Computed example of a mutant assay.
Amino acid sequence: MPLTVTRFAPENMPTAELAKALTDPRPASYKFEYFDLSSVGSVPRDILALGGADWENLPINWPAEIKAPFGVFPVLHITTASGVELKLAESFVIEHYLAKKFGLFGDNEWEEQLIKMFHSSSVYLRERLAMRVTWNFKDKMDESFETFMTKALPVWIETHSKHLKDNGSNGHYVGDKLSLADLQTANDIDHFACLYKGDKIIEAIKNCPEIWRVKEEVDKEPRLQAWRQSKGYKKHVALSQTMYANTGIKIAGSTQIL
């Protein structure tokens, strides 16, 4: 399929001007380019909805054409208040930028680093499950799933539970307000519900009240509740459930078929 490597910013615009445009306190508008799925698209969409941003989903013309800085998605398109058009690629960068923009990094430098660590830990849990179970060979999925359930998931639950208790078991990782870390954990749980044997993962997490309360606190946010009632959100969930209902790699002769 044709690949067009797109620029991050207008050609020949000095970095000082780009930085000024990107940090302009006036509201920007956004287009979030990703598939009609949850996965790595869920947290950025939640942040934009939670922040009351002027944003829209940008559909991907897949597989006819790819236009992106690295040939992969998601990509966040930003039109600043001064009219400068910028692109951010890579999900971590997009999530960190939006979290900072909409006040989801705590109140000081230490809180920001804590939130980034909790966020990274939960992202890694999701990606470990994806690589070792969801997209493993079909005849290896059960074995890999049991390894995930007996090794990776218990460690995540134990460590996150301890840190949440240290913060008062109030449904937040840091302080007493919503952060990027909270959103990531809540979205991990929603994502797991769509996966192979996801009910067993949800059952294990539900047995940890400190972690489950994080999801409950996120789900209470009025702007997120409104977003979850939208056609766009329901479409992402429905397509995620359909796609993840039959994952794994089959072997047909010498050809691997997804």
Rank of each mutant, 00 (worst) to 15 (best):
L37K: 08
P69V: 00
L98A: 09
F70E: 00
L37D: 06
A64N: 11
E56S: 08
I60G: 10
R45F: 06
K31E: 12
E56V: 09
A68E: 00
D46P: 01
A21R: 08
A21I: 05
H96P: 07
N57F: 04
G41S: 04
L88G: 04
F102K: 14
F102E: 15
E90V: 01
D46H: 03
L18N: 11
T79K: 13
R26A: 07
S42Y: 04
K20Y: 13
F92P: 14
W55C: 06
P44K: 00
N61Y: 15
A49Y: 02
Y97D: 00
G51Q: 10
G51M: 08
R45P: 07
T79H: 05
F92W: 10
A21Y: 05
A68M: 04
Y30T: 12
A81Y: 03
A99H: 07
A49N: 04
A49G: 01
V93P: 00
I60N: 08
G103V: 05
F73K: 12
P69Y: 00
I47S: 04
L48E: 01
K31Y: 07
F102P: 14
K100Q: 09
L104Q: 06
L48W: 01
S38V: 08
L58V: 01
G51C: 08
N61A: 15
K31T: 14
A99Q: 05
S42T: 03
I47V: 04
Y97M: 01
K67I: 02
N61Q: 15
K31V: 11
A16G: 13
R26G: 02
T80M: 14
V93W: 05
A68D: 00
L58C: 06
L104F: 04
A19F: 15
F70A: 06
L37E: 07
N57K: 05
F102L: 14
F92D: 13
S42K: 00
T79N: 07
V43C: 02
G51V: 06
H77C: 02
S82N: 12
A53E: 02
G103N: 10
K31Q: 14
F70D: 00
A16I: 11
L98M: 08
F73A: 08
F35M: 11
A21L: 10
E65I: 10
G71M: 03
T80P: 11
F102I: 12
E33N: 05
L37H: 11
G52W: 09
R26W: 03
D24L: 13
G51D: 11
N61P: 15
F32D: 02
L48S: 00
A28T: 05
L86C: 03
N57E: 06
P74E: 01
N61R: 15
E90L: 03
F92I: 09
P44V: 02
T79G: 07
D54L: 05
I66L: 09
A64W: 04
G51E: 12
L50Y: 10
G41H: 03
H96I: 12
Y34C: 06
E85N: 15
I60L: 13
K31C: 05
V75D: 02
S38I: 11
A16S: 15
W62F: 13
I94P: 04
V72E: 14
L22Q: 08
G52C: 08
K87S: 12
V72I: 10
S29H: 02
P63M: 07
K20G: 11
S91G: 12
L88K: 01
Y97L: 00
